[in-house]
Lab assay of single mutants.
Amino acid sequence: GIPATNLSRVAGLEKQLAIELKVKQGAENMIQTYSNGSTKDRKLLLTAQQMLQDSKTKIDIIRMQLRRALQ
């Protein structure tokens, strides 16, 4: 079985993952909103794209940590 310490770690990672998935969803929504907007929305679009990139990276890292914890 999986050690108890790993189980609480997994629960924490799953919570983090859920949050990051919401951030990713929000960033994707912002990108959709701003991509057909005016030029003043360009900065917001770039910010949203950066957020999305960061979020995807975090999600990958969390998933990797989850896999390790579940081994």
Score class of each variant (00 low, 15 high):
residue 23 V to E: 04
residue 19 I to L: 10
residue 40 K to V: 12
residue 68 R to F: 10
residue 11 A to D: 08
residue 48 A to L: 12
residue 27 A to D: 00
residue 43 K to A: 13
residue 39 T to L: 08
residue 57 T to Q: 12
residue 29 N to D: 13
residue 41 D to Q: 04
residue 54 D to C: 09
residue 69 A to S: 05
residue 40 K to A: 13
residue 57 T to C: 13
residue 16 Q to E: 08
residue 64 M to S: 10
residue 29 N to C: 15
residue 49 Q to N: 05
residue 64 M to A: 13
residue 68 R to Q: 12
residue 2 I to D: 12
residue 36 N to S: 13
residue 65 Q to I: 04
residue 55 S to Q: 05
residue 58 K to H: 03
residue 22 K to S: 06
residue 16 Q to K: 10
residue 48 A to E: 01
residue 18 A to T: 05
residue 41 D to H: 04
residue 11 A to E: 14
residue 28 E to P: 00
residue 14 E to N: 08
residue 1 G to F: 10
residue 12 G to Q: 15
residue 11 A to C: 15
residue 52 L to M: 04
residue 45 L to Q: 02
residue 52 L to Y: 06
residue 60 D to P: 01
residue 29 N to H: 14
residue 15 K to D: 07
residue 60 D to A: 14
residue 56 K to Q: 12
residue 37 G to I: 05
residue 59 I to A: 02
residue 45 L to G: 01
residue 69 A to G: 03
residue 30 M to A: 08
residue 62 I to E: 00
residue 36 N to A: 07
residue 39 T to M: 08
residue 69 A to R: 02
residue 22 K to L: 12
residue 68 R to D: 14
residue 9 R to F: 11
residue 24 K to W: 06
residue 39 T to E: 12
residue 30 M to D: 10
residue 19 I to R: 14
residue 51 M to L: 11
residue 9 R to S: 10
residue 50 Q to F: 03
residue 59 I to N: 00
residue 42 R to M: 13
residue 8 S to Q: 12
residue 59 I to P: 00
residue 46 L to N: 05
residue 9 R to N: 08
residue 43 K to Q: 10
residue 3 P to F: 04
residue 30 M to S: 03
residue 67 R to L: 09
residue 12 G to M: 15
residue 22 K to M: 09
residue 67 R to Y: 09
residue 11 A to I: 11
residue 62 I to D: 00
residue 30 M to K: 03
residue 20 E to H: 07
residue 59 I to Q: 00
residue 53 Q to D: 06
residue 4 A to F: 01
residue 35 S to T: 13
residue 53 Q to W: 05
residue 27 A to Y: 12
residue 23 V to Y: 10
residue 49 Q to K: 07
residue 71 Q to H: 09
residue 29 N to F: 13
residue 57 T to Y: 12
residue 25 Q to P: 00
residue 51 M to I: 12
residue 66 L to C: 02
residue 14 E to F: 15
residue 25 Q to M: 08
residue 16 Q to N: 03
residue 36 N to F: 05
residue 23 V to F: 08
residue 67 R to V: 10
residue 54 D to H: 06
residue 25 Q to V: 06
residue 56 K to C: 13
residue 46 L to P: 02
residue 45 L to R: 02
residue 50 Q to T: 05
residue 48 A to I: 04
residue 20 E to P: 00
residue 15 K to N: 06
residue 24 K to I: 07
residue 47 T to L: 14
residue 41 D to G: 02
residue 62 I to T: 01
residue 66 L to D: 01
residue 23 V to Q: 06
residue 54 D to A: 08
residue 28 E to W: 06
residue 5 T to E: 13
residue 23 V to H: 06
residue 53 Q to A: 12
residue 50 Q to R: 15
residue 37 G to E: 09
residue 7 L to K: 13
residue 64 M to W: 10
residue 48 A to M: 05
residue 46 L to S: 05
residue 49 Q to L: 14
residue 31 I to T: 01
residue 54 D to P: 00
residue 17 L to A: 00
residue 58 K to T: 03
residue 69 A to F: 05
residue 24 K to N: 02
residue 1 G to L: 08
residue 67 R to C: 14
residue 15 K to C: 14
residue 20 E to A: 07
residue 25 Q to S: 07
residue 39 T to G: 09
residue 11 A to K: 09
residue 27 A to N: 02
residue 53 Q to E: 13
residue 60 D to H: 14
residue 18 A to D: 05
residue 30 M to C: 08
residue 47 T to H: 13
residue 4 A to R: 08
residue 17 L to N: 00
residue 59 I to M: 02
residue 61 I to M: 12
residue 63 R to L: 12
residue 43 K to E: 13
residue 55 S to M: 02
residue 28 E to R: 04
residue 50 Q to K: 11
residue 17 L to P: 00
residue 22 K to H: 05
residue 12 G to P: 03
residue 18 A to C: 14
residue 11 A to R: 09
residue 29 N to V: 10
residue 9 R to Q: 10
residue 22 K to F: 05
residue 7 L to M: 12
residue 48 A to Y: 09
residue 50 Q to A: 10
residue 5 T to M: 12
residue 39 T to N: 07
residue 60 D to T: 12
residue 45 L to D: 01
residue 2 I to K: 11
residue 66 L to S: 00
residue 4 A to W: 03
residue 65 Q to Y: 05
residue 60 D to R: 14
residue 23 V to K: 13
residue 10 V to I: 15
residue 59 I to C: 02
residue 34 Y to I: 11
residue 65 Q to A: 10
residue 49 Q to F: 11
residue 13 L to A: 00
residue 61 I to Q: 08
residue 61 I to F: 12
residue 46 L to C: 10
residue 59 I to V: 03
residue 50 Q to L: 09
residue 52 L to A: 03
residue 28 E to H: 03
residue 12 G to H: 14
residue 42 R to Y: 14
residue 12 G to L: 15
residue 28 E to D: 02
residue 21 L to I: 07
residue 40 K to I: 09
residue 47 T to V: 15
residue 49 Q to I: 15
residue 17 L to F: 01
residue 1 G to Q: 10
residue 31 I to Y: 03
residue 35 S to A: 09
residue 26 G to V: 15
residue 25 Q to C: 09
residue 5 T to H: 14
residue 38 S to F: 07
residue 64 M to T: 14
residue 19 I to H: 13
residue 38 S to T: 11
residue 56 K to N: 09
residue 6 N to P: 05
residue 65 Q to F: 05
residue 4 A to S: 06
residue 48 A to P: 00
residue 41 D to C: 07
residue 35 S to L: 13
residue 11 A to L: 12
residue 23 V to D: 01
residue 57 T to A: 12
residue 63 R to I: 12
residue 29 N to Q: 13
residue 21 L to F: 04
residue 61 I to T: 09
residue 14 E to V: 14
residue 12 G to V: 14
residue 66 L to V: 03
residue 57 T to W: 06
residue 63 R to G: 02
residue 8 S to A: 10
residue 20 E to W: 14
residue 19 I to Y: 09
residue 28 E to Q: 07
residue 14 E to P: 01
residue 39 T to V: 09
residue 33 T to F: 14
residue 15 K to L: 11
residue 7 L to A: 13
residue 4 A to T: 10
residue 36 N to L: 04
residue 71 Q to G: 08
residue 26 G to C: 15
residue 49 Q to Y: 14
residue 40 K to M: 08
residue 20 E to G: 01
residue 66 L to H: 01
residue 66 L to P: 00
residue 45 L to Y: 05
residue 68 R to V: 15
residue 64 M to K: 13
residue 39 T to R: 06
residue 28 E to L: 12
residue 29 N to T: 10
residue 59 I to W: 00
residue 56 K to M: 13
residue 21 L to G: 01
residue 51 M to H: 03
residue 70 L to D: 03
residue 10 V to C: 12
residue 16 Q to M: 11
residue 34 Y to T: 03
residue 48 A to Q: 01
residue 21 L to W: 05
residue 14 E to T: 12
residue 6 N to T: 05
residue 3 P to V: 06
residue 22 K to G: 06
residue 61 I to D: 12
residue 71 Q to L: 11
residue 30 M to F: 06
residue 54 D to W: 04
residue 46 L to Q: 11
residue 17 L to K: 00
residue 52 L to K: 02
residue 55 S to R: 01
residue 24 K to S: 06
residue 56 K to H: 04
residue 32 Q to W: 11
residue 58 K to R: 14
residue 37 G to A: 08
residue 34 Y to S: 04
residue 33 T to A: 15
residue 71 Q to C: 13
residue 15 K to Q: 09
residue 34 Y to F: 07
residue 38 S to W: 03
residue 51 M to A: 08
residue 70 L to Q: 06
residue 55 S to T: 09
residue 13 L to E: 00
residue 37 G to F: 01
residue 41 D to E: 06
residue 41 D to K: 02
residue 6 N to H: 10
residue 55 S to D: 00
residue 13 L to K: 00
residue 53 Q to P: 00
residue 53 Q to M: 09
residue 5 T to C: 15
residue 71 Q to W: 03
residue 29 N to S: 10
residue 42 R to E: 15
residue 26 G to Y: 14
residue 28 E to G: 01
residue 58 K to V: 03
residue 31 I to R: 01
residue 25 Q to L: 08
residue 58 K to P: 01
residue 21 L to T: 03
residue 33 T to N: 13
residue 59 I to R: 00
residue 14 E to C: 15
residue 71 Q to S: 11
residue 24 K to D: 00
residue 32 Q to R: 07
residue 10 V to D: 01
residue 18 A to Y: 07
residue 13 L to N: 00
residue 3 P to R: 05
residue 36 N to I: 05
residue 47 T to N: 11
residue 32 Q to V: 10
residue 12 G to C: 15
residue 37 G to Q: 06
residue 58 K to Q: 05
residue 63 R to M: 13
residue 6 N to F: 01
residue 35 S to Y: 13
residue 43 K to F: 10
residue 69 A to V: 07
residue 41 D to N: 06
residue 50 Q to W: 04
residue 3 P to C: 15
residue 32 Q to C: 13
residue 65 Q to G: 03
